[in-house]
Design a protein around this nucleic acid. Structure first.
Lengths: 332, 332
DNA sequence: TTGTAGGCGTTATCAT
DNA sequence: ATGATAACGCCTACAA
């Protein structure tokens, strides 16, 4: 593959001049510029960004690390990030971790070795121990959706506690008093906030949330399935259940179907986060949704601002969750 | 950020030795290795892959370019690719083009500048004119899902014509004779094959496919909506409609809902490609599905084999599509 | 087993 | 306005 010397030779100029043309700098005579551009074409030259970023100390790359590529929440997030990134002439590179902290560590390591300019992470880790050493080099870091303590980073998240309250209020308004909860993945901030919000809201309604009403979960279908089954086995099962995210709700839904139970006839079901495409075909599940794309855009802004040294100290942006009422609940 | 010289100094050895330790080469005395590893820890050294790939001429990176990140078909594809990639110690970097050839060109250009080791592309382009010049450098290239003529590349695709036949046969078996078709994006091989398959299958049943039964489409919701509306306006509307992909079907479905029409009561609807999560919550749409993850895995294998010089000439892998019968059709 | 030194493809700094 | 040349951070003969 042709390099800058080949181009220079063909154009009869020095590599410095070629470099100037490539990077669109001033001080190149129109004639020589034309000469160089011709050589550029003829050689099919494609600059080696690895080499240039060696000297420029910029890769023009924004990295996004997410835990689940099949969750429309995260793909929408990426789309929001991309929108902003292309406007700022940055490329986006994304990595998927499958909710696996080990994969996450590897991914971040890889991205740091690539010297990406900034990092946006929805972390699958329980704490920042693994990744904080990787971030010493003060690469701008933005946490999204999930917080990690002890990390010098911006944060874009939703008001999970508020969202939980919205859901509980809604269900209580429909007459439910035994409201089950399928928790999120242990150690994830979002999971904890949502659970806390549920507990608070229950108490606010004078309902003591019994621990048997709370099932473990993992933000995956498996947790949703097992969670709902466990709740159904109770002597006095809940009349309504809150799943900690969209994927768990799907798991719960399919477990219910297999048991021949219907929503909302036999049980009411709601969850956090909307279902992307699925809810367009099938506007069924009542959810509290976050302004996902906007969150992505904001995260990218924070990251790039910090890169340009515009912002100084850590910032936290909290988005409101809104109830989208559909057909998965009934009055009792 | 510490570089290899800092580490060498701290360990009291030469950079060559440090390099050997990093790359796990033989011929390093256990003691010196320990010394170096200590220095590695203390400095928090993270190798600069841009620099090393300059000499190694390898980036250990496999790139995937897809047209629609919100389409579960493509995200599943990526998951399949990732599975294979991690097994071979390669990282995956993905780019989204939104079905926009210009974005695609930019993305490929970027990836080439990054000197990725191989490229897997589901192209949004009508032909290879734009991208073939970028690929002179004989980076291994695998086309997936969509073919481009005049490109020296492997191809992993599904038997789209066969899939179309399956759908037509199925509908005819239910008594349908006026079967509408919403085409895919013009210029995309997959769109053409599916249409051709439809035409052939119709003829095979002695049904002359009238051109009014064929609506334009774009593989997006918009096309699905407009397509179905156009077909409904016909003097004699079809009793069943085939959408060229899952997203179009969703668009069609929501347009029908807005018009107060029900599937399958008022009209039957089927499409190519399954709906990912959506079909788990709502097993409604009858589809012909491709073994998506496998396709991704195979594509990654082809790419990496070629990288290692294992394979020689272009290969084409064709996967069968299977009918998944659900509730979106009725007998007439 | 270890070190020296040249090279990978660019950009940046000085000259000119 | 252009050219020489020293970085950038790492790898890899080749020597020792």
């Amino acid at each position: 593959m042709a390099n800058i010397y080949d181009v220079a030779k063909k154009a009869g100029v020095s590599v410095a001049t070629v470099s100037r043309v490539i990077n669109n700098e001033r001080y190149v005579a129109p004639k020589t510029r034309a000469l160089v551009e011709k050589a550029l074409k003829e050689t099919g030259f494609i600059p080696n960004m690895n080499a240039s970023s060696l000297t420029k100390k910029r890769t023009n790359t924004l990295a996004v690390v997410i835990p689940d590529l099949t969750n429309p929440f995260f793909t929408d997030l990426i789309c929001g990030i991309e929108d902003q990134a292309v406007q700022r002439k940055m490329a986006v590179i994304m990595a998927n971790t499958d909710e696996d902290p080990t994969k996450e560590r590897r991914a971040i390591r890889f991205l740091m070795e690539k010297r990406v300019d900034a990092l946006i992470i929805a972390s699958a880790a329980r704490n920042s121990r693994e990744i904080s050493p990787l971030l010493k080099g003060k690469t701008p870091l933005v946490l999204i959706d999930r917080q990690l303590k002890g990390l010098n980073a911006d944060l874009v998240r939703s008001d999970d506690r508020g969202g939980a309250k919205t859901l509980v209020d809604y269900l209580v308004g429909l007459g439910h008093r035994r409201i089950g909860f399928i928790a999120g993945k242990k150690g994830i901030s979002t999971a904890k906030s949502r659970l806390d919000g549920y507990l608070d809201a229950m108490k606010a309604h004078g309902l003591t949330p019994e621990s048997e009403l709370i099932a473990e979960g993992d933000f995956q279908q498996k947790g949703g399935r097992e969670g709902i089954l466990k709740l159904l086995e109770l002597a006095e099962p809940p009349t309504a259940v809150i799943a900690s995210n969209n994927i768990e709700a799907i798991g719960a839904l399919s477990a219910l179907r297999e048991k021949g139970l219907e929503v909302p006839k036999d049980i009411s079901l709601v969850c956090f986060d909307d279902l992307g495409l699925a809810s367009e075909v099938y506007p069924f599940l009542t959810v509290v949704a976050q302004p996902v794309r906007t969150m992505g855009t904001v995260a990218a802004q924070l990251a790039l601002d910090r890169l340009e040294g515009i912002s100084e100290q850590e910032r936290e942006v909290v988005m409101q969750m809104t109830l989208i009422e559909r057909k998965s609940c009934r009055r009792v």
